[in-house]
Design a protein around this nucleic acid. Structure first.
Lengths: 202, 202
DNA sequence: CTGATGTTTCAATTATCTCTGAAACATCAA
DNA sequence: TTGATGTTTCAGAGATAATTGAAACATCAG
């Protein structure tokens, strides 16, 4: 037995550790993909997040097997979302990147710019449809009027769902606390369900 | 001026009403797509939902410009998910379909389940990575140990987020905790955020 | 049974994303 | 200025996913 066994790096274990970190990057990539981002964004972010020192683009490409171009584009996107930031190392021409650790920052931006936009668009189209049907219902036979009334009612349901969703998401985004976007959004979905159920029962 | 102007269907307004309904189908399609379903599923469901009478596959195809094959597959999928159901019209060979009105319940459940799977996978890989890093950290220089410690800490952060998320999602999926839901979820999410923040600061 | 009508299936096409690789660009040192 | 180094851009390749169209299948009436 060597005198200081615990200081000899074990190649086998080194490899396992590296593999495990890459696996972490991958599952984070899967989650990010689930939320509508590119897989690569999650992978790169996770690699940065688990790295003690800021990484260069070349480091990232080497570790994650991505081309320079892909790394550049991914970092640009992550930076735009504010979840990764550049850091300069004096005397080094390369750019380095480190992960933003505040998950909420990411979440609130995501919610604001993605879900909220979608929901708003939806609401607007429901409102517009309601108006159009209202106008169309002014003419026609009684039967047609009845049909229009049904359509308006259903679209009104959708509209109220969208409005509830919109205010919930707004509230979420406005608040300074809360992490874990997915869960928060699920909360919103649940609320929507409640709302619809209640309205249907009345 | 005609004697009963309000009963004459206005072609212009008819067209606008139809366009508006199609637009509604489209935005619902977008939302569904965002939640991980196919776009067409949302469009077909929305068309059925806003229709006073059950629609035949041919109706749907004509309205949404989909091929018979696409309509058939989409309806099969919607039926499988239980958000659309067949209805028979006596003396008519065709199948008719109408929208299940409690879609949001189903959709949100499905989304939660999917996410739960992902989160579980993530958690497992975090745990595995933590173990691997722990083993690797047994050897190496003090500097390497420090690096491993950082990595473990960060992965521990991810792990705690995943664990909280997992239990929250489990509760939501399993329970009819749905009724208590929105605020409870927000509360839990907030607690989660607090927890992560506290851990980071120590 | 046969033909008419409607539905389902699936291989092939088409559309949509992502990534690559190379060129253009930028910056700095010598 | 020139060359070395690093970054960005983007047309095209490659991978995935959605859609079509036609054939197979199912059902019913005559």
């Amino acid at each position: 037995m060597s005198t200081r066994a615990q200081e000899a790096p074990d190649p086998q274990r080194e490899l396992e550790a590296r593999t495990a970190r890459l696996r972490v990057a991958d599952v984070v990539g899967n989650l990010m993909e689930f939320w509508g981002f590119k897989r690569g964004m999650g992978r790169v972010w996770a690699l940065c997040y688990t790295s003690p020192k800021a990484l260069s683009a070349a480091d990232i490409g080497a570790e994650l097997q991505m081309s320079a171009g892909a790394v550049s584009m991914t970092l640009a996107e992550l930076t735009k979302w504010g979840v990764v930031r550049r850091s300069w190392v004096p005397g080094d021409r390369r750019d380095f990147y480190e992960a933003e650790t505040s998950v909420w920052k990411l979440v609130s931006r995501v919610v604001r710019e993605r879900e909220l936009t979608l929901v708003r668009e939806a609401k607007e189209s429901f409102v517009a449809a309601d108006r159009a049907l209202q106008l169309a219902a002014q003419g026609g036979t009684p039967e047609e009027k009845k049909r229009r009334a049904f359509e308006r009612d259903r679209i009104g349901q959708l509209r109220s769902i969208a409005e509830t969703g919109e205010s919930l998401l707004s509230a979420l985004v406005a608040g300074e606390a809360i992490s874990a976007a997915p869960l928060a959004v699920l909360g919103a979905a649940t609320a929507l369900y409640e709302d619809v159920t209640r309205r249907r029962r009345r």
